[in-house]
Nucleic acid binder design. Structure first.
Lengths: 221, 221
DNA sequence: ATTACTAGTAAGCGAGTAT
DNA sequence: TATACTCGCTTACTAGTAA
């Protein structure tokens, strides 16, 4: 993993155009940008060079520095994380593992009261059953983000026997398969995402219990 | 200035949604994200709290953390720098100081051969004279970025007395005043930007020699 | 001017552990 | 379970200076 001060150093170099061009910069000049000493900047550059993040041409006077494609990749990765924070707030990604439910998913997804609404509001008829994804504990925090967004509401309905509660729903994707996650209105936060799809996912994606999957949830319709 | 490891920590918190919500995270969980020890993460959180970057609610179990507006501002600033690197490559910003030229700017900007082209290609008739901005030495590196972009070419022309050389030109802005910078085709890199505008800038912006100005150069037309 | 080594000091780290 | 303290160890820092 990249040391944070080296990342900052590369960022400064990139701001001066070092991704596309060789830039001419002395360790003293860099140190002023970084608010450190000349020696420290010199050390940073040596470290970056050693890691293959930059190339250097040491002339008799100053050095010419350019960020390598490896270095640029690292910066790009960082940029994408900031985009995730400030721009791409229309989707949230979760990492989790497949687990078996208790079979009640199938019972619910076969109720006509739900099926008709899924078809109308989500655009597909679900394969019977839900695919349950247990998300990492720490990612439960991201679930809060879902609470603040307008979900696709599946209304409650009644049969002659009982009442089926309302469900909040979001379009979502596992692997490349489109579907939706369903969050029962009357329930507390859970660390399990219930995913429904027109397809039989365990077969289509060859999934078994314990497999790691990424779930992308779309917040805008 | 923000320590780089604290910035990284805030970024991780932000990725979990800590800008908009309180997130529930233990120092051990954070340490796994940061690839450090529980003790180090605990220390980071204490530092961030002390600096007013985050708020914490310590319950009997885990702590609830939210990034303050000050913290969010710091992250936003960082994001903008990455945008500068990867996205906003259609403009470049320079910082420099006003200096006096040798008066020859006036001579050139009054030549009809130039004036007509400025009017046609840049869209304004320049006030006689150029405003010279000496850029920080380190920023000369950014000038290289100009070289790779298509400039607005002001063609060379002849009068009965002499030949006037071609000029590369870019739309630009100082303060809020639109104008252009002109780069003589036959010259080496210089640390002086020559800015022309329809307005008399020294008066309009109340500029004197030595004043610091920001010049934004637009690379796309 | 530079870069970068050495050496002494300061800051950061994590194991152990108190609370 | 948590958080966060102490403390010994390691890493990072900068002044001085060689090349």
């Amino acid at each position: 993993m990249m040391k944070s001060y080296l990342l900052q150093t590369m960022k400064e170099l990139a701001l001066l155009g070092a991704i596309k061009n060789k830039i001419e910069i002395s360790s003293l000049e860099l140190s002023k940008k970084m608010k450190s000493s000349q020696q420290t900047s010199s050390r940073y550059l040596l470290e970056l060079d050693k890691k293959g993040m930059i190339t250097r041409e040491l002339g008799i006077k100053k050095q010419l520095i350019q960020i390598t494609s490896i270095g640029a990749e690292v910066l790009k990765e960082e940029f994408m994380q900031y985009q995730q924070i400030f721009e791409l707030t229309d989707k949230i990604q979760f990492t989790g593992r497949i687990i078996s439910g208790m079979g009640e998913g199938r019972y619910y997804t076969e109720q006509n009261g739900y099926v008709n609404q899924f078809k109308e509001k989500l655009g597909f008829v679900p394969y019977p059953g839900t695919l349950n994804v247990e998300i990492e504990h720490i990612e439960r925090n991201k679930l809060r983000l879902l609470k603040n967004h307008n979900a696709i509401i599946i209304e409650e309905f009644e049969t002659k026997n009982r009442t089926f509660g309302g469900v909040r729903s979001f379009h979502a994707k596992i692997g490349n398969v489109e579907g939706a996650i369903v969050l029962p209105l009357r329930s507390h936060y859970s660390n399990i995402l219930e995913f429904i799809s027109h397809h039989f996912l365990r077969e289509k994606l060859n999934l078994e219990d314990g497999d790691e999957v990424k779930v992308v949830i779309y917040l805008s319709e």
